[in-house]
């Protein structure tokens, strides 16, 4: 792998970590704040605001994951774990750590 390609891969992993954090945080805000506000306090505005943001972050995360995996170097188990974790609260934070480890390993190999 040339150094330009390595920089590009590192940048891709960094962007994925950021999107993963946004996806995970908005999911927690929906489950922990917006839904209780809607059903317990009768305040539906929070779900209307955070819901769409989470939707866009989720699509972006899935899109970037498929793009990264299509380049090769990912096992089926790793890919499945990265997809499944996106559906579970706090799962995205595990993904973010896994991506950070991958980023350090790639940086060390250069």
């Amino acid at each position: 792998m040339s150094s330009a390609e390595q920089i590009e891969d590192l940048l891709q992993l960094r962007k994925m970590r950021l999107v993963s954090l946004v996806e995970g945080t908005t999911l927690l805000l929906i489950v922990g704040v917006a839904v209780p506000l809607k059903y317990l306090a009768g305040f539906p505005l929070a779900t209307r605001l955070i819901g769409p943001v989470h939707g866009v972050a989720f699509v972006l995360y899935v899109w970037m994951l498929i793009q990264t995996v299509s380049m090769g170097g990912w096992s089926r188990a790793e890919t499945a774990r990265m997809v499944l974790a996106a559906f579970i609260p706090f799962g995205a934070f595990l993904n973010e750590r896994a991506l950070a480890r991958r980023q350090s390993a790639l940086a060390a190999s250069g």
């Binding site: 899935v62 899109w63 970037m64 498929i66 793009q67 990264t68 995996v69 299509s70 380049m71 090769g72």
Partner: peptide, 20 residues
């Protein structure tokens, strides 16, 4: 369609690096 686009994008990157 978005998933397919992700696959195509990754594939294009792989091809430009002469893989696969």
């Amino acid at each position: 369609l978005s998933v397919l686009h992700g696959g195509l994008s990754g594939r294009l990157r792989g091809l430009s690096r002469n893989q696969q």
